[in-house]
Simulated scan of single mutants.
Amino acid sequence: MKKTAKIPYAAIERLALYSRPLKVLLKTGVTVVSSEKLAEYCGVNPAQVRKDLAYFGEFGVRGVGYDVNDLLREIQSILATDREWTLCIIGVGNLGHAIVENDNFREMGYRFVAAFDKDQEKISKRLPCGLLIESVERLRDVVRLRNIQIGVITTPPDEAQRVTDLLVDAGIKGILNFSPTQVKAPKSCVVENVDFAVRFEHLAYHLSKVPLK
């Protein structure tokens, strides 16, 4: 892999986007794809595809295109999705249920091995996938016992920071936060905040600029 001082965050996000059509092409027996075709599938321009891939090395043959299997394997290696990751979820409400039961995550190598909640009515019950809902007070011990690498937060906003602190204390190095609030963690822990409300507001803003018919 090519080493570079700084890779734009957007380029890393687009790599994940490129992997989607590559998987489809591989399943349908397509062995080679051009940057033009890959760009068309992903809604970007061909120059952007070539530039993004160039951050990580030299791929493809000029005038021919990219070997679908090789490019997909390289992207998965770059994104570290060529291995299995163990996850826990904290907050087993509607959103938490939907995430844990999503087969796509399992197929991508993200395996939930623990679920936590503070609601006594939920604790000790099993989810359809077989996970036992455990008390959040057991989080530290369970994370270490099961070698959990990523914590997913789907709690109400007033509980998110406390849960973040518990995850960090347990040794978690990656957190995906769906709670509608920004959480803080030390630099040793990577946090991705996913706020659906912000996305809706972003969409509403752009829609407000569209002329009414």
Rank of each mutant, 00 (worst) to 15 (best):
residue 206 H to S: 09
residue 37 K to M: 12
residue 27 K to S: 15
residue 17 L to W: 07
residue 86 T to D: 00
residue 206 H to C: 09
residue 203 L to C: 06
residue 213 K to C: 07
residue 62 R to M: 05
residue 27 K to V: 05
residue 60 G to R: 00
residue 47 A to I: 12
residue 136 V to M: 04
residue 141 D to C: 09
residue 40 E to D: 14
residue 40 E to W: 15
residue 120 Q to G: 08
residue 79 L to D: 00
residue 56 F to N: 05
residue 62 R to G: 15
residue 184 K to T: 11
residue 161 Q to R: 06
residue 134 E to S: 12
residue 145 L to N: 06
residue 53 L to V: 03
residue 7 I to W: 12
residue 11 A to Q: 11
residue 62 R to V: 13
residue 191 V to H: 03
residue 190 V to Q: 13
residue 55 Y to R: 02
residue 147 N to K: 14
residue 70 D to Y: 12
residue 55 Y to E: 14
residue 26 L to V: 05
residue 88 C to F: 04
residue 161 Q to D: 02
residue 97 H to Q: 09
residue 51 K to R: 15
residue 114 A to R: 04
residue 180 P to M: 00
residue 163 V to K: 01
residue 3 K to M: 11
residue 44 V to S: 03
residue 131 L to W: 01
residue 212 L to K: 13
residue 159 E to Q: 10
residue 41 Y to A: 14
residue 89 I to E: 04
residue 22 L to D: 00
residue 121 E to Q: 15
residue 146 R to S: 09
residue 52 D to Q: 04
residue 37 K to V: 15
residue 60 G to A: 01
residue 4 T to P: 07
residue 63 G to I: 05
residue 151 G to M: 08
residue 186 P to L: 02
residue 51 K to V: 10
residue 12 I to M: 08
residue 9 Y to G: 08
residue 85 W to V: 03
residue 142 V to K: 12
residue 146 R to V: 08
residue 186 P to Y: 00
residue 199 R to V: 14
residue 133 I to R: 01
residue 5 A to W: 08
residue 45 N to P: 02
residue 94 N to L: 12
residue 143 V to W: 06
residue 137 E to H: 11
residue 71 L to T: 10
residue 155 T to L: 04
residue 52 D to Y: 00
residue 25 L to T: 06
residue 15 L to N: 04
residue 121 E to M: 15
residue 120 Q to R: 15
residue 56 F to D: 02
residue 143 V to Y: 02
residue 152 V to M: 07
residue 58 E to G: 04
residue 127 L to G: 05
residue 172 I to S: 02
residue 138 R to Y: 11
residue 179 S to L: 08
residue 37 K to D: 09
residue 112 F to A: 01
residue 155 T to D: 03
residue 59 F to C: 14
residue 60 G to D: 10
residue 154 T to K: 01
residue 111 R to G: 01
residue 174 G to V: 13
residue 199 R to L: 15
residue 138 R to L: 11
residue 140 R to V: 12
residue 144 R to S: 09
